[in-house]
């Protein structure tokens, strides 16, 4: 079923620019204020999703599908990144019994 997009109902693209900027900034602030490494990875996912939202908005706005393909590839990369990041985290937790990024500081050689 084909529905009318929200932009055909007179919605401005500004709304999605502001929304995804706010989401991105929330992700950045989350990375800065939290010290749990898992929450940090989640905030990175939030930032990636903010970018995805803006990509889909512009793709729909200009009537070009390419942006949505890129969103698909961003999801692929995000899935790979989350897997490797979490397995590194589990391994680090086994050795130092914490996920505090302040203590990861001691890992440097």
């Amino acid at each position: 079923m084909v529905l009318a997009t929200i932009f055909q109902n007179g919605m401005s693209i500004d709304f999605y620019i502001v929304l995804s900027t706010i989401l991105f900034v929330i992700g950045v602030v989350g990375v800065l204020i939290r010290r749990n490494a898992i929450i940090l990875l989640m905030c990175i996912e939030l930032m990636l999703n903010a970018v995805n939202l803006l990509m889909v908005a512009f793709s729909t706005y200009f009537g070009k599908s390419d942006g949505q393909i890129f969103v698909f590839f961003i999801m692929v990369v995000a899935a790979a990144e989350a897997t490797v990041g979490l397995s590194i985290l589990v391994m680090a937790y086994r050795n130092i019994r914490t996920t505090d990024v302040g203590i990861f500081n001691n890992l440097k050689g």
Binding site: T5, F7, V56, S59, T60, F62, G63, K64, S65, Q68
Partner: peptide
């Protein structure tokens, strides 16, 4: 330059 289409998604 807006050119909206509703089937692209």
């Amino acid at each position: 330059t807006v050119d909206q289409s509703d089937t692209i998604g």
